[in-house]
């Protein structure tokens, strides 16, 4: 049962102030977003309507701890079908941003490993200006799934290497310092 005293009435305002979260409160709970959501079609645990509803009600802890929003594939089907222009995909980005910030502050722990990948990905951009995709992927697999996880990707990796699809050295751009400064000035660690 949902108890009003456990709800956080300010959460919807916090979320609405995030980039992408602006239209959260327009939602009238119609379920249009959940119809046609590809992830919801194969995973009954995922429901964008429920995520938006929990956000509006202020079920902050349950929502952040559920981590279900990390399953969103950003396909924008819900965004396209929402009659209220809630911009659900974008709201989910805002939620992810909030969760990452809280995790960096040490307030929460994120079990989903996607943010680890995202961080390695943007670190590669920070260092080189471009992403060394294969290297980031291998590093991520090794960190989250160990040698076994990395080896599971080996045959595909080898095949790709043979076809000349995996460069040995990462590409670096001349303006990589300019890119690094974007990170620094925006305060992104």
């Amino acid at each position: 049962m949902i108890k009003a005293k456990n709800l956080d009435p300010n959460f919807k305002y916090q979320l609405s102030r995030e980039l992408g979260g602006e239209n959260l409160e327009y939602c009238f709970n119609c379920t249009g977003c959940a119809c046609g959501c590809p992830v919801a079609e194969v995973d009954p645990d995922f429901n964008p309507r429920k995520i938006i509803r929990m956000g509006i009600l202020g079920m902050t802890k349950e929502l952040i701890e559920s981590e279900s929003f990390w399953k969103c594939v950003s396909c924008y089907t819900c965004f396209a079908r929402c009659p209220q222009d809630v911009r659900i995909t974008e709201v989910l980005y805002a939620l992810k941003n909030m969760a990452v910030r809280e995790a960096l502050k040490g307030n929460i722990e994120i079990e989903t490993t996607k943010p680890i990948f995202d961080k390695m990905f943007i670190d590669s951009i920070k260092d080189n200006g471009r992403v060394a995709e294969a290297m980031v992927f291998a590093k991520y697999k090794l960190k989250t799934e160990g040698i076994k996880g990395l080896m599971e990707q080996f045959s595909m990796g080898l095949e790709m290497f043979k076809k000349g699809k995996i460069p040995i050295l990462p590409e670096k751009i001349k303006g990589k310092k300019q890119v690094k400064r974007i990170f620094e000035k925006a305060g992104i660690k």
Partner: peptide, 13 residues
Amino acid sequence: NCCGALGAFSYNY
């Protein structure tokens, strides 16, 4: 430079 792909949006809009 890299556009940030989809990972950057999740990490920092």
